[in-house]
């Protein structure tokens, strides 16, 4: 076969693999979240469809596929129509640099972690477009809140990533994993602080409780995706859970040694660590109440950002002292 054709087939195959992983992972996470929330609230959760409701997400997906796609009358159609893509496509693109194992990575860019951060920063535009295009005051308020929140928490997030980059001396995801062969990063005190800052800021980035004010259901119906139905809504939903997986996967790569681990194959370790972080964040979500907008903003700017800056300074000093 011609090499040109081979190249295209190989690219398409990689794309299908990434998309399949995204869809299956999101479906699993939705079921898992429902089960965890049920346990926290002393309920059973979905039990009817499949073993302990394991096929519930499949049934929900079929339902969403069959639903009518309703366009609101006053909507700004083009913006409204484009918004879900702006949220979903970056979430899928991040998987280009996701290290599942020593060789299981689509492309180990030498600016890997920066690539991931920059691509995820595009989705804030999609959220804003959804809020604006829907011509609905709840959507618009949700979009505004979300944009304010994401750009505020981006600062401590990137600063805590910077600490890891300083320690590892590389931006490549595989390089960061290899730098942890002598000891996982979260065991060092300054990196443990960076880990905690990263987790808090990342929770805010994906709009989860206690930072879920963009879609606070008691005040804003459903926030920026109020006016979406059928597959358009499903795209937001899948993107939300994919972003959730992404922050956990990045955290496990940057701080918990990524795919490093004894005995078991490396992708198993990678997924185990990522889903472990996801479980803890779900636990937090179903335990804590929601913050107020002003509390959240002042926490980002007056507590997290100075702390993250200080951490960069301390790490710099530690690296200089050690030579």
């Amino acid at each position: 076969m011609k090499p040109f054709l081979m190249e295209i087939i190989w690219l398409v195959l990689k794309g299908i693999m990434a998309l399949t992983f995204v869809a299956v992972s999101a479906m699993f996470l939705i079921w898992f979240e429902r089960k965890v929330s049920a346990r926290v609230q002393n309920r059973m959760g979905p039990m009817i469809t499949g073993f302990h409701g394991a096929l519930q997400s499949v049934a929900d997906t079929v339902k969403l596929l069959l639903k009518e796609n309703i366009v609101p009358t006053g909507a700004d159609f083009v913006v409204w129509w484009l918004a879900p893509f702006f949220v979903a496509v970056p979430a899928i693109m991040v998987f280009v640099c996701m290290p599942f194992g020593p060789n299981a990575i689509v492309c180990d860019l030498n600016v890997g972690i920066l690539f991931m951060c920059s691509v995820t920063s595009v989705s804030v535009l999609g959220i804003f477009m959804a809020g604006w295009g829907s011509s609905n005051k709840y959507s618009l308020l949700g979009g505004m809140r979300s944009a304010a929140q994401i750009i505020s928490y981006e600062v401590p997030l990137l600063l805590s990533v910077l600490v890891v980059v300083m320690q590892a001396g590389t931006l490549s995801m595989q390089g960061i994993v290899h730098a942890q062969e002598t000891g996982w990063f979260f065991l060092k005190p300054n990196l443990l602080l960076a880990f905690i800052i990263y987790i808090i800021a990342a929770t805010a980035e994906v709009n989860r409780v206690p930072f879920d004010i963009p879609e606070a259901e008691s005040e804003l119906v459903a926030g920026y995706h109020t006016e979406y139905s059928g597959m358009k809504f499903a795209m937001f939903f899948v993107a939300e859970y994919t972003n959730f997986f992404i922050i956990a996967a990045i955290a496990s790569t940057l701080f918990l040694g990524g795919w490093l681990g004894p005995v078991a194959p490396s992708p198993v370790w990678f997924l185990l660590k990522a889903y472990g972080i996801i479980f803890i964040l779900m636990w937090v979500r179903w335990t804590l109440p929601r913050l107020r907008m002003d509390q959240m903003m002042s926490f980002a700017w007056k507590a997290l950002t100075p702390l993250a800056l200080l951490n960069v300074l301390v790490t710099g000093w530690l690296l200089v002292i050690k030579g």
Binding site: F115, C117, S121, V122, V124, L125, F128, I151
Partner: peptide
Amino acid sequence: APFIGVIQILVYVGGIMTLFIFAIK
């Protein structure tokens, strides 16, 4: 030049466009 490309997305799309839209709103 992936570094320049990544910075272009991070600064212009992630930062400046968000500020533009805020200003418009």
